[in-house]
Simulated assay, not measured.
Amino acid sequence: MTDTDDDIREFARVQPTSAPPEMGRFMSAMRRLQDIAVSTDPGVTLWNDAAAAIEDVCTRLEEHRASAGVAPAGRVLELPGNGHPLMPPWQVAETRADEVTMRGHFSRFHVGGNGAVHGGVLPLFYDWHFGMVVSAAGRPDSRTAYLHVDYRRITPTDEPLSSRAWIDSVEGRKLFVRATMTDMDGNVLSEANGLMIKLLPHQP
């Protein structure tokens, strides 16, 4: 096991950070690549050429690997998805001690079929959103105990959306949270509820 593997296994104490404009440009290019990768059929030669180009970039970037909590991806609040390509391009719009509102959209990369966002993307989004609520409330590091999503309507791509998550109740280490995602006309697209549990000192 390498030092990097140890860093990944350890619970990262994530702290927000800033990043240069060049990282924002890189993440925009990454998101564009993700969308293109699922919406193109260029043929064998270009597939190989594209793979070679991407492999070259991977080789160059791997020389600068950083451990969890040090690499900026996922910690840059001013970038969509906090600068993490796994997260959809949403950002915090409003925050209170018990509530966080996010705004953003989904793209072709997130499509499950017929232009609708894949059902599995929404739990990922809500898990991330609930983590934002934990941070806004000043709670210690927590893990998701459960997360339930009710799908009310098809979630569209490339349309501005809003999601509000809030603390429903607190019981010791347990933080019960709820959320609602809506379109710009106020239609409820999905709702979620979950349980976030404060970690004990020995828990990863």
Rank of each mutant, 00 (worst) to 15 (best):
Met1Thr: 03
Thr2Asn: 08
Glu10Cys: 08
Arg13Ile: 00
Ser18Gly: 12
Ala19Ile: 08
Ala19Gln: 03
Glu22Phe: 11
Gly24Trp: 09
Met27Pro: 02
Ser28Gly: 10
Ala29Phe: 08
Arg31Gly: 12
Gln34Glu: 14
Gln34Asn: 15
Ala37Pro: 07
Ala37Glu: 03
Pro42Tyr: 05
Pro42Ile: 14
Thr45Cys: 12
Asn48Ser: 13
Asn48Tyr: 14
Asp49Tyr: 07
Ala50Val: 15
Ala50Ile: 15
Ala50Met: 15
Ala53Glu: 09
Ile54Glu: 00
Ile54Asn: 04
Glu55Lys: 11
Val57Gly: 13
Leu61Tyr: 11
Glu62Tyr: 03
His64Arg: 00
His64Asp: 00
Arg65Ser: 06
Ala66Ser: 04
Ala66Phe: 03
Ala68Val: 00
Gly69Tyr: 02
Ala71Cys: 10
Ala71Gln: 05
Ala73Tyr: 01
Glu78His: 03
Gly81Cys: 02
Asn82Met: 07
Gly83Trp: 00
Gly83Glu: 00
His84Tyr: 07
His84Gly: 06
Pro85Arg: 07
Met87Asp: 03
Met87Thr: 04
Met87Arg: 08
Pro88Gly: 03
Pro89Ser: 13
Val92Pro: 08
Glu94Gln: 10
Ala97Met: 09
Asp98Arg: 06
Arg108Asp: 10
Phe109Pro: 03
Val111Phe: 10
Ala116Gly: 01
Val117Asn: 02
His118Thr: 11
Gly119Ala: 13
Val121Trp: 08
Leu122Asp: 00
Pro123Ala: 07
Pro123His: 05
Leu124Phe: 11
Tyr126Pro: 05
Tyr126Phe: 15
Asp127Lys: 00
Gly131Ser: 13
Val133Ala: 08
Val133His: 02
Val134Pro: 07
Ser135Thr: 07
Ala136Tyr: 10
Gly138Glu: 02
Arg139Gly: 01
Arg139Asn: 06
Arg139Thr: 04
Leu147Glu: 04
His148Leu: 15
Val149Phe: 12
Val149Cys: 15
Asp150Thr: 09
Arg152Ser: 06
Pro156Ser: 14
Thr157Ile: 15
Pro160Asn: 02
Ser162Met: 07
Ser163Asp: 00
Arg164Phe: 08
Arg164Gln: 01
Ile167Gln: 05
Val170Cys: 09
Glu171Phe: 06
Arg173Thr: 10
Arg173Ile: 06
Lys174Tyr: 08
Leu175Thr: 09
Phe176His: 13
Val177Arg: 00
Val177Pro: 00
Ala179Met: 07
Ala179Val: 11
Ala179Thr: 06
Met181Glu: 06
Met181Gly: 13
Thr182Cys: 15
Met184Gly: 06
Met184Gln: 04
Asp185Leu: 15
Asp185Thr: 15
Gly186Val: 12
Val188Gln: 01
Glu191Ile: 11
Glu191Ala: 07
Glu191Gly: 14
Ala192His: 09
Gly194Val: 04
Ile197Ala: 14
Pro201Phe: 11
His202Met: 05
